[in-house]
Design a binder for these strands. Structure first.
Lengths: 220, 220
DNA sequence: ATGAAACCTGACCAAACGGTCAGGAAGACG
DNA sequence: CGTCTTCCTGACCGTTTGGTCAGGTTTCAT
């Protein structure tokens, strides 16, 4: 009767109760940690539950099955993961855009290395659950951004380069710092969370990419 | 009594019988395929046995346990995997050496992508079984080859660059084509086994690295 | 040939895992 | 307060998996 419908609890349409929202978030976070470290098969729902501070039964109250959890985590991450590439702007100059893109990708590797590893894991196993997204969304996105790069080439702003390889190599370099974090730590004692090391990585990747497309590292 | 000891069968000291040699090889190959695709936990010894054309029981006659198989595969691969880096020669010119190194790494990604993926998998899970090798052998090797690069810098042959980042980025770019083979295939329909694509990858990586260290791609 | 060692098999077992279920505790609303 | 829904638990179950074992078959040197 009162004007606005109360939104505190029990909404079927879309919203979740406070408890649901909290617990689902805790589960997804714990699941990301486990799946990224131990892979799909190496992760048990009991460990996820433990990490999320609840019982296995309770976890199964929120997610019906293990595949359900895995897919939820994957979906939850994919958007974030592809966001930086979407921002490549053909109307700004390539040095700025490429530098910004690399910095964003490295930031993600620094702040969400688990996401990078989960994604790598999924792809290495043949991408059984994200084939569709890769074939459709990602393929389209890459085609679109390849066009941006070709546009820069045609305008004489950067050297002739294969756009697709360029994109792959930027992914490779930036994600490497997350995926091989352990190895990097063992060899250097540092990772992207050390500001100095991160700066070194940024400079190394940016220098390589910019000079690779025929741009001098340019002004500070 | 007879002068030379026969070597056909039953030698404890080191050699294996023909049957052992053959079956162990078949197991290791099958295990590489399985572990690299499904990870450690996602692989069952029964599937390995099936792939190797023998029964689970028989496989366990050759390797006492699953960890045993895994470690054997890993060890079997590590030498091959690190070989190219060992060959970096300070006395030859950097353009030749770096190009050759990149080509060798890409060749390995083309011919043994499973090995690359297995290695990546192991490292992503925290390198629990090859920590020692990384901390000792690989760390030493990287330090040694960093010195080579510094030597080139000091001699004015290449631009000032952080040697460790340079090595990481070469690893990243070359191994990416093996580790993310599925994604690359979904996006481009090609992989390193296509001669054209491989050539494109070689050119892209070499161009990027050489210009990254201040060398023009130079003569054909 | 023959006997011993090497090779192989199928039946079996205990532990771990994903998932179910009946029912109890806590929270929201009249 | 009462009651209805949501939230949570522990016991339980079927399957899968790594590994064992007793015994059979092949291989090979003599």
């Amino acid at each position: 009767m009162s004007g606005a419908k109360r939104q505190s609890k029990k909404q079927r349409p879309d919203g979740l109760s406070r408890i649901q929202e909290m617990n689902r978030a805790k589960i997804l976070e714990a699941a990301l940690g486990q799946f990224s470290r131990f892979g799909y098969s190496g992760t048990t729902i009991e460990k996820i539950a433990g990490e999320a501070g609840m019982s296995k039964s309770n976890l199964l109250y929120y997610f019906a099955s293990k595949p359900d959890i895995y897919e939820a985590v994957l979906e939850h991450i994919l958007d974030v993961w592809l966001a930086p590439l979407r921002m490549l702007d053909p109307d700004r100059d390539p040095a700025t855009e490429l530098s910004a893109y690399i910095r964003q990708k490295l930031q993600m590797s620094a702040e969400l290395p688990e996401a990078s590893r989960l994604f790598a894991n999924e792809v290495m196993q043949g991408a059984p659950r994200i084939r569709r997204v890769l074939e459709e969304d990602l393929k389209g996105l890459v085609a679109e951004k390849s066009e941006v790069i070709r546009h820069w080439i045609a305008a004489g702003k950067i050297r002739e380069t294969d756009p697709v390889h360029l994109i792959f190599l930027i992914w490779a370099m930036t994600q490497h710092y997350a995926d091989f974090q352990t190895q990097i730590e063992l060899l250097t004692g540092q990772n992207l969370k050390d500001p100095d090391f991160r700066k070194g990585a940024e400079e190394a990747v940016i220098a390589m990419v910019l000079s690779g497309v025929g741009l001098t590292p340019g002004p500070a």
